[in-house]
Amino acid sequence: MVSPILFWIIAAITVIPALSLLFARKAVHIAMSIVLVMVGLAAAYVALDAPFLGVVQIVVYTGAVMMLFLFVLMLVGVDQREDLKETITAQRWIAFFAAGGLGAFLVSLITRVSIPVAEEGAVGDPEPIAILLFEKYVLVIEVLGFVLITAAVGALVLTHVPRLKPRRTQVEVQRDRVRTGSDPVNKVFPGVYARHNALDIPALDPEGKPIEASVSRVLKIRNQVQDGAEFRAQLEDPSRKEDDR
């Protein structure tokens, strides 16, 4: 028999994080709460004499499936906003009513029946499960092998993007640079005045004029570029340097 304290702990760490599926805003928070749900379910399996399945649950669900979800979340961008306009009117209330009705229906049905509980059942250790898997259910295992292979190939096919244009080699890139008249070599690095973090200062060309393109575009957007005028003035007129001090 399962101890009531364990049951209530499991119930708390499965139902409460699962509710984030309905109420949380950020998808990453939801994914992490579902990880907690999976861990709670693994504890439930161990409590229900299924230690092998508990371990598999941790490995497969928290280790693989939910991390795959997180990968995809990062791939499509975590800041994907959920549009709040409803295509179907009152979809929210229909959904709550339907799901709540389903839950109430299932719970009322289950509380009505009484099944005698086996006192000393078989424990789901790896060995008896392996024997059952490869004797009674060996055909199912083979079919599942096909399913897994098909799924893997399907995922590869679905995410494969054919190359539309031929790959540009380094020679072609270089030729295009020269043809368009842009810098044939690397971009000029920003200024190197040792006054402060000098990535925000444009480099000076041989005539002493700042080269605007040498500063990162990001700093320009943020308005964090120094024009170097102060430093140029110091170079031209060394006496000002002493005045500053």
């Binding site: 119930a11 599926l21 339907a98 299932l106 289950i110 509980v117």
Partner: peptide, 25 residues
């Protein structure tokens, strides 16, 4: 504690999951 309680817990989780499928876009 009766293991049937876990079935009730499972049906609650199932209802939450189905609500999420119906609700979230």
């Amino acid at each position: 504690m009766d293991p049937v309680n876990f079935v009730i817990l499972a049906s609650i989780l199932f209802a939450i999951g189905s609500a999420a499928v119906l609700l979230r876009r």
